[in-house]
Amino acid sequence: MGSGYALLAIGFTLIFGVLRRLNLSYGPSIMVGVFFGTFLFLQFQAGWYAVLLATVLGAVIAGAYVERMCFWAIKKGAAVASMVSSFAVWMQLEEAVTIAFPDRTYEFPALGDFELIELGDLSVRQEHLIMLGIAALLVFLLHLLLFRTRFGLAVRAVSEDPDAALFMGVNTGRTIFLAFILASAIGGIAGYFIMATEEVITPKFGLQATFKGLIAMMLGGMGSVPGAIAGGLLLGVVEKQAEWYAGAVWRDIAAFLLLFVFLIFRPGGLLAQGTAARELAALRRV
């Protein structure tokens, strides 16, 4: 579970990094993707790769819509307006999906039938291991993309200082758009794997994905990819523990309480250092 959260947090962080604005519609766009996937599965009994592809595609399309509507169209400096607007689009997406899929829950294809793996006292679900592996692979690819390609350089330049990047000839608008698409695709993959282990989806998944991604990102520290991974894993562990000891309601209480306490005592997140201070300074300007 933690690796799924970590992927969501990475997507959040990418968008926050280049825009310095919060995209509340991130989870709902993934939810749209997941419903694309399930539609393909229910109608055509599509295989897992087609479902995955559809999920990513759906998330990317919805993400592009969100970007055009809430971020590209709203002027720089109106961060609050962007955030509220992204919430408004969230409601749109959620209702659109509810109308298209009127039942409360839908089946989502599982990754396959796997046995539990016993490792001494520990038993691990195999799909969780697969998830972890894929998350690690994605992080590696993302790292290559961000630090070895021209596009990555542009993304990092924009997140450092959009105005300076503009003067250096970086097409900031396009960079932001592409980063958005990339984040949506990562979110789509995360959504697919989370759903493939849960096997049941509802339109409320948008809310959950936004919350979990957000919490994991904040725990790790906004705008930092390693932080997002650490935050996601921490969130996964804490939730599991709380659920184990106190029951399902306490799982979510623990998650939010953890976030609240973290924000008060360590607002920069787990990996708070120079970057977090910079972020706070950037926020002060907003």
Partner: peptide, 19 residues
Amino acid sequence: TLRLRGLYFAIATLAFAET
């Protein structure tokens, strides 16, 4: 939450409300 600004404050209030 006095120390927190902007988005951090927003998220902290959200966390409190959900709690």
